[in-house]
Write a protein that binds this DNA or RNA. Structure first.
Lengths: 208, 208
DNA sequence: TAAACATTGTTATTTTATTAACAATAAAAA
DNA sequence: TTTTTATTGTTAATAAAATAACAATGTTTA
């Protein structure tokens, strides 16, 4: 299978969680327009995305919720679990950690790192916090593949370089410092200030 | 001036902050390719964005950093300050509040709301937390235009509807629940789980 | 049974975003 | 002074994403 467009991957993640909600509500089949409306997108978008992953419904009966959840999982999850660490377990790090409570099936938060002695060697938001100095050793031992960067801006670049040196393959950068990474490392950045200023701009303009 | 493309607005926010860093470093002029490289994008992108806001440099001298900061401000900031509230001052809310410390010039965080008696009427992360019940009254009094939604998923929809009823014009939704809003309200959503699963997918695929 | 209908999968079209190409031009070098 | 060079602003080309169009087809209704 070819690599999917990034936007499709994002929506697949959202489809799956929405579908899990449907299962909980004992709904076993769902039409494209229903799934679309739960996510406030169009039915065509849903059908197109599902086409890309080769999923087919029974005509006029809608999609089999459980089956579709599985199919999406086969596409976007890895075979074995993928281990994740949070670097910097301040407010933001703890918030992110909280999302792992609901058990992301194949994504495993296995460690956090910090250099605050108050935090080190404690379990914070459900995950053990290790001293920053042990990162090198533990990245290997725990087979950590993804780093979530929630350190203060001043440490962003240095920390990112370290995680890469210690073998990380993907970084989710929540700091406001833009990173660049060598090829072979996947980088996803999210900047909250940008989002806030964007909202302010469009509110001011009031046409969008 | 026509409304700018959303992506351009996002980059303008990033340009400005990068330029402020330059000013601090006593750099007064900057070439498009230098600004680009600080953000790990292309010089054409920078020039194109600046073309859209009608900024011109002195040829071959690069952009005047201070002037460009001002120009961007005139485009993306509103005349008067725009007031913001954080709804739900848990870990994520506190993390967001932290970004206002550095004083977003025209974006003012004036309140947070929560219904935890432990938090109410205290100053948390630099902002006073008011009881959820007072939202209606204070949204008007404090002239709050933008709501940042950092409540637990179960409250997302209800809370969003309330903020809209109380006069908010823009929502930045950090919950994992997709919202839909009436026209005239600007909605920006960010879903951390989606980002994490996206990173996991591309790490697994290892071609992007 | 035949006609109308609802839904899907997919191709075609449009829109949006990015990248490339290049003329214009001033500074620096010859 | 003339030539070369570096940089910009802008138009043209390409790529990516979203939307529309529609044939195919099984279900329901008449």
């Amino acid at each position: 299978m070819n690599t999917l467009p990034a936007k499709t991957v994002e929506r697949l993640s959202e489809y799956r969680r929405t579908l899990m909600g449907c299962l909980n509500a004992k709904r076993n089949y769902i039409y494209s327009h229903q799934l679309a409306s739960l996510l406030h997108i169009t039915a065509v978008q849903v059908r197109r995305d599902l086409m890309l992953i080769g999923y087919s419904s029974v005509l006029r009966k809608g999609y089999d919720v459980r089956e579709l959840i599985d199919t999406i999982g086969r596409i976007i999850d890895s075979e074995e679990t993928m281990n994740v660490a949070i670097i910097g377990i301040g407010n933001l790090g703890r918030a992110v950690a909280g999302y792992f409570k609901g058990k992301r099936s194949k994504l495993n938060l296995v460690a956090s790192f910090d250099n605050d002695p108050q935090k080190v060697n404690k379990v914070i938001s459900g995950v053990r916090c290790y001293p920053y100095q042990e990162m090198e050793k533990l990245m290997g031992e725990l087979n950590i593949r993804i780093a979530i960067l929630t350190v203060p801006a001043d440490y962003a670049r240095e920390t990112a370089e370290n995680t890469i040196r210690f073998g990380i393959k993907g970084i989710l950068n929540f700091t406001t410092v833009p990173l660049n990474v060598p090829s072979g490392i996947f980088l996803e950045e999210y900047d909250m200030i940008t989002s806030m200023e964007k909202v302010a701009y469009f509110v001011k303009e009031n046409r969008f």
